[in-house]
Amino acid sequence: MIVANGAANDAQPKRLRDALRQARIEAADRTGVVVDLRDAEVARLDILNEALDPLFAEIPNDIELFDRGISQGDTPRLWIDMIAHVVMGRDKRSYRLVQDSRFGRKVLAESHDVQAMVKAVTDYIARRMIEREHMLATAVPPPEAKPAPVVQQSSRFWPFVLGIVVGVIGLFALALFVSTRGH
């Protein structure tokens, strides 16, 4: 009976080792697929980025609202500005223009077609530039700063000297009090 249990114990670790080896191979295959999918997403975003080159060439140099670039993280993104980016949809084939706001994320456009996304990004940039113009036109100039009244700062030397004199007199009075009480 002991031999049978020993034989059973020897057989199970071999099967477990085989199962672990197989699980590791499958995990490596899945990781490879995930990396391939991420590379495919970055490649699609790069295609859109190149298609946006003529649009960004038209933006005047003095407008610094837009900072385009692809970030490669868990979810690759093509940033248009600080609050909007293009990300691949769940099917990894469709582009999704997304804007972050204080109320959450809002999908502005979604399409499989690069030219449709170029149009959506163009419309977004145009709206942002108009918003900027309105803000600059209605901006209230800051009130003129009144010169601060000149305040004479008193010397700190005399309060320091006064503190030393008061401290010495206090110590002398304490010593005199202690010496008269001891007799």
Rank of each mutant, 00 (worst) to 15 (best):
H134V: 12
A51T: 00
G32C: 06
A8N: 12
A11H: 12
F103A: 01
R38A: 11
L55T: 03
L174M: 09
N5F: 13
P149I: 07
V3F: 13
G6N: 11
V87T: 14
Q115S: 15
T138S: 11
D91T: 03
Y124F: 06
P142L: 08
L55N: 03
Y95S: 01
A109P: 08
A7I: 12
E110G: 12
E50P: 01
R181K: 11
V178S: 05
L162N: 07
H85V: 05
H134R: 12
G163F: 07
Q12I: 15
P141E: 12
A109N: 10
F160G: 13
V178K: 01
A4D: 15
V107C: 12
Q12F: 12
D39C: 03
I47D: 14
L48G: 01
R24L: 15
I47H: 11
I164L: 15
R38N: 10
V98A: 06
G163H: 06
V107G: 08
G167I: 03
D29W: 03
G104P: 00
V165F: 08
R21K: 10
R127W: 07
A84G: 13
A120R: 07
F160W: 14
M135R: 00
Q72M: 11
L65Q: 04
G69I: 10
A4W: 15
D81I: 09
G163Y: 05
Q12T: 15
V98K: 02
L97V: 09
D62Y: 04
M129L: 10
T122K: 00
S101F: 00
G32P: 05
H183A: 05
M117Q: 00
S94Q: 05
N49L: 05
R21L: 01
E58C: 01
I25D: 08
M135H: 02
Q152G: 08
A139R: 01
A145W: 03
I47T: 09
P149H: 09
A43N: 10
P13S: 11
A126G: 05
A175L: 08
A4M: 12
L108A: 04
K119M: 11
F66M: 04
D81E: 08
A57E: 07
A8W: 12
R96W: 05
F157S: 07
